[in-house]
Nucleic acid binder design. Structure first.
Length: 594
RNA sequence: GGGGUCGUAGUUCAGUUGGUUAGAAUGCCGGCCUGUCACGCCGGAGGUCGCCGGUUCGAGCCCGGUCGGCCCCGCCA
């Protein structure tokens, strides 16, 4: 093995071209592939930026050529040599540097490598846990590496936009206190204070509000947040927010800032010119038309409410649901009248995973409505459905009949599934949508009390204030979510900034005065000292990067992600700790010593 | 907490109705090769069929359990 010594790179592996002919250059990188012809040897040398072919020719430079025979995948090299045009028609159009090659005059082997456990080229499929176990090798592959580069570009764009608009980047504590509401906390035991615990922040929510009360006026932070809940393809227990908060503003100001930020990020990363302002839709409308509060507006197939049109109909299943206070809604799957029995069974099973007890369907034919249930409807009802659904021959109607919540969830999932099956989800289209006018609270049936839909610091809409004590479920909040292609990528609100309103809100949530004082006393006190009107928003950076990179998994945009069981195959975290560590933390282990 | 799916060579996979010595591609090792770019040709090594138990004359294959990857429901203010 050789020493790097004083040798330094003159270029990276993606820059050289015909402009550099006959220059003497120094490149460093990894052996991607070698092609040893016995005589001449070609090596594809790879670094973060790209690939350059280097050549060892025994007739030109016998010494490095002799040395090059031993080179293997992922060995680390420094090479000095002359930039030469490739002879004749030997150019490689697949490489940016494909017009040239480096005739090596000096080879330094900086390190050897074991044979990699999986191929590092771009098109090999490798299982997730091997990739994560050797993540440092996975990062050398183009896919993940390029995603991290784009992530860097995105955060830099966000930073510069926010700085230009007067925001201060301020850090907030990672060791903070657990507060009620919200997700399960990650807890950190305190050694110095026996029996007390810190919690890792689910978000910097209260601190950023306190920064507004501290007169910082405009704050942002690109910050880790922690929620100890089960994982999904778009959810990790630690994730990153672009978090911001502004003083003396209303919804429109914050939305405009958010739109400007997103616009700058899209331009910087993908060269896509967005045209804000983005459309807005009320929560009620989103639920009614799409069945959920983060509609994918790239395609139609909207939900149609048939409850009143079918009240008293001859189909007992529907009628019983309607009599019982439930609803009947339907989707017209345009042109899906050709679906087979198996297709319909698959969709029914899929609906079942979201709580549907069944799924009625009708195939609209030229002269009849083909379905096991058509016979239960009279002509008026069929005509009413035809009009409401704009049903034409060749269409397929799918029904949901159940409680409001189940119908909306089932049909919204069916709609998305149909969108995927019919290839209506075009990943080159970016449909942004603001969802506004969320309910302030919902009723938690299990705990028999109201719970904040957004969080307990979200301000109610002024015009709904009088309903706060009489019909709290009808009160709308000043919260807003930013939705992109059916994925919630940001959310925020105007906050409560008076002690009275905050106390009223905590009261509504069934948090007693003593508890409020203990858990939120510091916030209530701060509100007493001239808190400015303020509000903000936080973007889920990971989800945003999934959209920008077209990744199917959040793991593909995070350098060192966790598995679905929230472990890290690379470090084998979480791991065990010594008994002494626990006792120092005043914790009593209940496991047996190994 | 629940449902689905996968687990066979370093890697990606095939493996029939339960039947002799578990295969392919690629990678790896050795040899040959002076213009390749997924170089080519010849040869070779490489397996606890995730693990435990059961059924059977006989299990990669069937059954039960368990561990792990992934997807989903619940959960995620």
């Amino acid at each position: 093995m050789d020493s790097l010594g004083a040798l330094r790179r003159t270029h990276n592996c993606n820059t050289l071209g015909l402009d550099n002919l006959n220059q003497e250059v120094v490149l460093m990188g990894w052996v991607l592939r070698r092609r040893d012809h016995g005589g001449v040897i070609f090596i594809d040398l790879r670094d973060r930026w790209g690939i350059t072919q280097i050549v060892f020719n025994p007739e030109v430079n016998p010494e490095p050529h002799a040395k090059a025979h031993q080179l293997r995948s992922e060995w680390v090299l420094a090479v000095k040599g002359k930039v030469e045009a490739r002879p004749g028609d030997m150019e490689n159009p697949k490489l940016k540097t494909g017009a040239i090659e480096i005739m090596v005059s000096e080879l330094r082997i900086l390190n050897t490598s074991k044979t990699p456990p999986f191929p590092l080229d771009e098109d090999s499929e490798v299982s997730d846990n091997i990739r994560l176990q050797y993540r440092y090798l996975d990062l050398r592959r183009p896919e993940i590496g390029a995603n991290l580069v784009m992530r860097h570009t995105a955060t830099q764009a966000a930073r510069s936009f926010l700085c230009e608009n007067g925001f201060l980047e301020i850090e907030t504590p990672m060791l903070t206190r657990s507060t009620p509401e919200g997700a399960r906390d990650y807890l950190v035991p305190s050694r110095v204070n026996a029996g007390k615990f810190f919690a890792l922040p689910q978000s910097p929510q209260l601190f950023k509000q306190l920064l507004m009360m501290g007169g910082m006026d405009r704050y942002f932070q690109i910050v880790k947040c922690f929620r100890d809940e089960d994982l999904r393809a778009d959810r990790q227990p630690e994730f990153t927010q672009i978090d911001l908060e502004l003083s003396f503003v209303g919804e429109d100001d914050i939305m405009a800032i958010a739109e400007g930020l997103v616009k700058q990020v899209f331009a910087a990363t993908r060269g896509i010119a967005l045209n804000p302002p983005f459309p807005r839709m009320s929560y009620q409308e989103a639920i009614s038309r799409y069945g959920n509060d983060k509609p994918d507006t790239r395609f139609g197939l909207e939900l149609v409410d048939l409850t009143e049109k079918l009240r008293g109909c001859g189909f007992k299943v529907f009628n019983a649901v309607i009599e019982g206070g439930g609803i009947v809604k339907a989707i017209n799957a345009k042109g899906c009248g050709t679906f087979s029995r198996k297709d319909l069974d698959d969709l029914t099973n899929y609906a079942g995973t979201f709580g549907a007890k069944g799924m009625a369907w009708i195939k609209v034919k030229e002269d009849e409505w083909q379905s096991p249930i058509t016979k239960f409807f009279n002509e008026n009802e069929i005509e009413a459905m035809r009009q409401a659904l704009n049903a034409e021959p060749g269409d397929l109607i799918l029904f949901g009949a159940d409680s409001v919540a189940v119908v909306n969830q089932v049909l919204s999932e069916l709609r998305l599934e149909l969108g995927r099956r019919l290839n209506l989800t075009d990943n080159s289209v970016f449909n942004f949508l603001w969802v506004t006018d969320f309910p302030l609270v919902e009723f938690d049936a299990e705990r028999k009390r109201y719970a904040a839909v957004h969080h307990p610091f979200t301000a109610p809409l002024d015009e709904d204030l009088e309903l706060l004590e009489t019909e709290p479920l009808k009160v709308r909040s000043r919260a807003y979510d930013l939705v992109l292609n059916g994925s919630e990528i940001g959310g925020g609100s105007i906050r409560i900034h008076t002690t009275e309103m905050q106390a009223k809100m905590l009261n509504l949530l069934g948090i007693a005065d003593e508890e409020a004082e203990e858990k939120f006393g510091f916030l209530l006190r701060a509100l007493e000292f001239g808190a400015p009107p303020h509000g903000g928003i936080a973007f889920g950076l990971d989800r945003l990067m999934m959209m920008l990179t077209g990744s199917g998994s959040i793991r593909d945009v995070i350098a060192f992600p966790k598995t679905q069981k929230a472990t890290c195959p690379l470090t084998d975290a979480p791991g065990s700790v010594a008994r002494k560590q626990l006792t120092e933390l005043h914790l009593r282990p209940d496991w047996k010593e190994a």
